[in-house]
Amino acid sequence: MRFATLAFLFDEAYKNIKRNGLMSIAAITTVTITMAILGGVDYSLYRVYQVASTLPSKFEIQVFLKTNATRKQTLALQNTIQGMPGVKTVSLFTKEAAWAEMQQEDKERRTFLTADVPGNPLPDRLDIKMKRPQDIHPMCLTLRNSARFPWIDTVKEDNETLNRMMATTRLIANLGIVIGLFLLVASAFVIQNTIRLTVYARRREIRIMQLVGATSRFIRFPLILEGFFYGCLGSLLASGIVLFAAEQFSNYVRAFQTPISEQLPQEINPFVFVLGMMVVGMLIGSFGVFLSIRRFLKRV
């Protein structure tokens, strides 16, 4: 294609946008609103997923040693476990501390269960935190190998809570994907419909172009540029709205100083977010035009 022709086609797209002021505003508004909803929901879902996936690491594996294990053996075991892959922390809860706690509780509740017991019947306990929740179960299986860890009596895995958390995390992640995809399709549909209106308003022009011998490519090019522009500008505005709202919400949550607000994982990189939104918007915009004019171009 010649440069003069290419320049003409760009100029055509620019003039079309300028001339159909109201239509352009309608298209951009539609893209902005749908993309803001799409981006906002996906953004929040991702944040929730991020938070949820950090929570399970709080849950521990409790390892009870045999009562006749010496402190030295306990500490050696603590060191061994600390060196195993995937382990975050291993803390020792000594039998003395456990006994004291139990006696204290007894006193408060006035149950006197510990009064007649001679000496300390409780074992040492190791509390293990894993880096990733899915490693908890395999870790327990390893620790239950009595040949390798002869001083371990029982291994307790916080099964119920753990499974619930895992399930929630998985659910949120899957729901996020489903809702995200659904919204993407819905936005594409709404945007495509608006663009179809702008193309329909120009079907007479398209017809005249065809009748004087314009190729489909020649007719399509400025229109696709136009859809590209709508998608681009709309998503840019939408990502601005979403990022602003997210920032406000983060500030609001942080003001409470809850354990969760301190634990909030790193923010989503705004550049990546804007870029992603623009790419999706541009694709929907230009592809929307492509689909809309196919019908008009078919009639040669």
Partner: peptide, 30 residues
């Protein structure tokens, strides 16, 4: 070259642009 019964000129182009359009379409230079 065709003069159509029911399709006239492009309404948002000037007379010059309308005539030039038939040349644009075939990729004519400035």
């Amino acid at each position: 070259g065709v003069v159509f019964q029911d399709f006239g000129l492009l309404p948002n182009k000037t007379v010059f642009e309308n005539v030039a359009f038939a040349l644009r379409v075939i990729g004519a230079g400035r």
